[in-house]
Amino acid sequence: MELVVRDLTVARGGVPVLAGLGFTLGAGEVVVLRGPNGSGKTTLLRTLAGLQPPLAGEVSLPPETIAYGAHADGLKAQLSVAENLAFWASVYGTGEIEAALGDMNLSGLRDRPAANLSAGQKRRLGLARLLVTGRPIWLLDEPTVSLDTASVALFAARVRAHVAGGGAALIATHIDLGLEARVLDVTPYKADPDAGANPGAFDEAFL
């Protein structure tokens, strides 16, 4: 189980943002993505998650190994905490949510509608979703937004446990999670916006 990225160019809205990016993420590793706002961290993560095709280069990873944690938590306000989590658990075919609820300190909130959660509680629920996917490679986009110090520590502990169990994580973040992680700064890979500018980029969506 290894994520290998070779000579990758990713684009947002048809404009290349990162070019020539290469790295590997093996089992038991955490890689922290760094870079200023707009440097292409989210675009890179979305490409790796398969939501958009790369402009060039290749991504090789075993199938069905990715769990993607986006900016938005994907919660349904009308459903309770347990119902939200149980939905994702059954989508991923794991079905077990009690451990994840306990791990993210949500047991006391299980019957509360997601609409009534605070921003930090929603985020904790969003992160608990990762625990019920059973997927080994986590791709996380700013996972600690709106979390308090204690919850950040709780989350870091979950990542540590996941990695110790043979998982891997690629985390885009601006804060120090206190993890033993390799840092990948994407700034040097900044693409020339005009280099790959392709007037036909709009059409490609329809081909």
């Binding site: 398969g50 919660l75 989508v91």
Partner: peptide, 16 residues
């Protein structure tokens, strides 16, 4: 609604 709250992105990466 799924698009706005992000669950469509997550569904697209899910094994469905």
């Amino acid at each position: 609604l799924d698009f706005e709250d992000g669950s469509l992105d997550l569904l697209a990466t899910a094994p469905v």
